[in-house]
């Protein structure tokens, strides 16, 4: 076992309320870990804590066995990761410049930026939109820009917070297929927060169920979905029950 990230006794409190409590969590190199749970379970907080965008109230985060400072992590460390947040946040400029944003921040030479952006725009099927203002894109197109902007950085770890939630079903299916093949090609460690069981079953190797800020079950996605324990069963049943009038 070679964990790339390990959490130890992580707690996050908002005033007196416990939002997150994770005694231990290890994420293996190259795995795709899904995180599911009901609204308000602490999924986004866990993702922000893992990606050091939010400092925990207590606990330690290890990256390749080295403890990270939980506040103000060094830029070199941050630049090894990429985060796609729940809301599609794109800059008021062209698709090309949006996708290039992270590379420009890293002072990558212009020629290399052009080559990489063209490659990723092609890969996500949005090359024809390169010169279009990103604020004029459809939800699906904007989300592709968001994902391309993260993947172009060739991150060691990719953090995704419900990146497909705003998409209609056909767009989602197409994007999920494209995205999974890209992730598998690159062997990127991915942490994927979602509330959609179909997405999670399709995308992830391992699944953690979060309830009231605590991981109540973690295991292979197939195991957790087919054999939920007493704590996660009510949530999993809810996810799989057909809605009847």
């Amino acid at each position: 076992m070679n964990p790339i990230i390990r959490l130890e006794n992580i707690h996050y409190r908002n005033k007196d309320r416990m939002i997150l409590s994770v005694p231990q969590l290890s994420i293996e190199q190259g795995e795709i870990l899904g995180i599911m749970g009901p609204n308000g379970a602490g999924k986004s907080t866990l993702l922000k804590t893992l990606s050091c965008l939010q400092a925990p109230s207590a606990g330690r985060i290890f990256y390749h066995h080295n403890a990270l400072p939980t506040k103000n992590i060094p830029l070199e460390q941050r630049r090894k990761w990429a985060v796609v947040l729940q809301q599609t946040l794109i800059f008021d400029t062209t698709v090309f410049h949006n996708v290039a944003a992270g590379l420009k921040i890293r002072h990558v030479p212009r020629k290399e930026i052009k080559e990489k952006v063209e490659f990723w725009l092609e890969k996500f099927g949005i090359a024809h939109l390169a010169k279009k203002n990103a604020h004029q894109l459809s939800g699906g197109e904007a989300q592709r820009v968001n994902l391309a902007r993260a993947l172009i950085l060739d991150p060691e770890v990719l953090y995704l917070d419900e990146p497909f939630s705003a998409l209609d079903f056909p767009t989602k299916v197409k994007l999920l297929k494209d995205f999974k093949s890209i992730i598998k090609d690159t062997d990127m460690t991915t942490i994927f927060v979602s509330h959609d069981l179909t997405e999670v079953k399709f995308m992830t190797d391992r699944l953690a169920i979060l309830m009231n800020g605590e991981i109540v079950q973690i295991g292979s996605t197939l195991d957790v979905v087919t054999n939920p324990n007493a704590y996660s069963a009510p949530f999993m049943n809810e996810m799989q029950l057909p809605i009847e009038e």
Partner: peptide, 12 residues
């Protein structure tokens, strides 16, 4: 969240 996204991109 835009501030968070910019931080996540590794900006100084």
């Amino acid at each position: 969240k835009m501030l968070l996204q910019i931080r996540a991109l590794g900006a100084t």
